[in-house]
């Protein structure tokens, strides 16, 4: 049950910096999602952590670097490629081959191959496997040594919905046993269900690390949806209070900004003597929060709040770094509102 500590990971490909001074922790007993756009450096980071790529920085597993682990598969299980096997070597032989390298008994091969649901095709050649079956075989290899740590690069790729559901349950179960699980994925909805914590990177640098719930709740896309009998008046008053107001069909107002809560919006409506017909908090999805965090190059800075390394929710998320609310001048009460763009 290893604590993973990555410190100062850096890697250049020629003049291009793939990973820059990246540091983060993965704590035991949690599934940590590793997120970033394509080309952000996720796979490179994982390879650096395992000593597969040459670069700067150090990653320790309970204080020991990977190359110095005795029988490393008993400590760290990895899935780095979708189909890392010879197409004509039988699945069971593939696993036995890996097992013998770390003195893992062959009986364990039978266990993991059943665990991942490949028992019926154990003696089949992987060239007949689908991508999802290949992923399962990769997971079986990762689990061979019953490791305390798992590092998985896009393990859900190619899995069908049942497979994704199974994977989620398995990883959460393994984390529940006290293991450290670091998993990268582009399936953000799945990650929202699976990951207890997140490490978000962009262009090789850390954007955020911390609890998933903090990451989402700190998104500037969190908003309050309100419907009143005089939406124009409420919108005007909200803009005066520096809220960002977007009008949606049926008179709905979507209100965002610092300090915008259902209590505050409801209270304002009450003070104005308006009849509240609907008042609900709309929380950003992980995808929205992720897009906020990684969508623009100028946001690729760990100093954007949301913790950065070593802190959860320090100065608040992305809000303080971005101006919100209306222009400096008084709002035009008669200005048209757009259903898709903030009116401010």
């Amino acid at each position: 049950m290893a604590l993973i500590q990555a410190r100062g990971l850096s890697k250049r490909f020629g003049s291009k910096a793939a990973v820059q001074n990246l540091s983060f922790d993965v704590v035991p007993g949690s599934v940590t999602g590793f997120l970033g756009p394509n080309g952000a450096g996720k796979s490179t980071t994982m390879r650096l952590m395992l000593g597969l790529d040459n670069g700067k920085g150090i990653t320790t597993f309970d204080g020991v670097v990977y190359r110095e682990l005795r029988q490393p598969m008993r400590h760290v299980g990895t899935v780095l490629d979708a189909k890392p096997f010879h197409p004509t070597r039988k699945a069971v032989n593939h696993l036995r081959m890996l097992a013998v390298s770390n003195k893992i008994p062959d009986s364990r091969v039978d266990e993991v191959i059943s665990l991942v649901g490949l028992g019926d095709v154990a003696r089949a050649k992987p060239k007949t496997f689908s991508l999802g079956m290949g992923q399962r075989l990769g997971l079986a290899a990762a689990l061979l040594g019953d490791p305390g740590t798992l590092i998985l690069d896009e393990p859900a790729n190619g899995l069908d919905p049942q497979g994704v559901h199974w994977l989620r349950g398995m990883l959460k179960s393994l984390a529940g046993q006290g293991r450290s699980v670091l998993v990268s994925s582009h399936l953000l909805s799945e990650m929202a269900l699976m990951a207890d914590s997140l490490v978000v990177i962009g262009r090789g640098t850390l954007i955020a690390s911390g609890r998933t719930s903090d990451f989402i709740s700190n998104s500037r896309r969190n908003a309050v949806v309100v419907r009143v009998d005089d939406p124009e008046r409420l919108a005007r008053e909200l803009r005066i209070r520096e809220a960002v107001v977007t009008q949606e069909p049926y008179g709905r107002l979507v209100v965002a900004g610092n300090g915008v809560t259902t209590d505050a919006v409801g209270g304002l409506a009450f003070d104005l003597g308006l009849r509240v017909l609907e008042l609900v908090n709309r929380e950003a999805t992980l995808e929205e929060a992720f897009l906020d965090a990684t969508g623009a190059s100028e946001e690729f800075r760990a100093s954007m709040g949301f913790g950065g390394f070593g802190g959860y929710g320090g100065q608040g998320p992305y809000g303080p770094a971005e101006p919100v609310g209306p222009p400096t001048g008084p709002a035009d009460p008669g200005a048209p509102t757009s259903p898709t763009e903030p009116t401010a």
């Binding site: 390879r47 395992l50 000593g51 597969l52 990977y66 190359r67 682990l69 490393p72 598969m73 760290v76 990895t78 780095l80 490629d81 189909k83 890392p84 096997f85 010879h86 197409p87 890996l98 390298s101 770390n102 290899a141």
Partner: peptide, 13 residues
């Protein structure tokens, strides 16, 4: 067949 990474995670030396 892209197995070198898996081989090196099994035998890092």
């Amino acid at each position: 067949y892209g197995t070198i990474k898996q081989t090196l995670t099994a035998i890092p030396d």
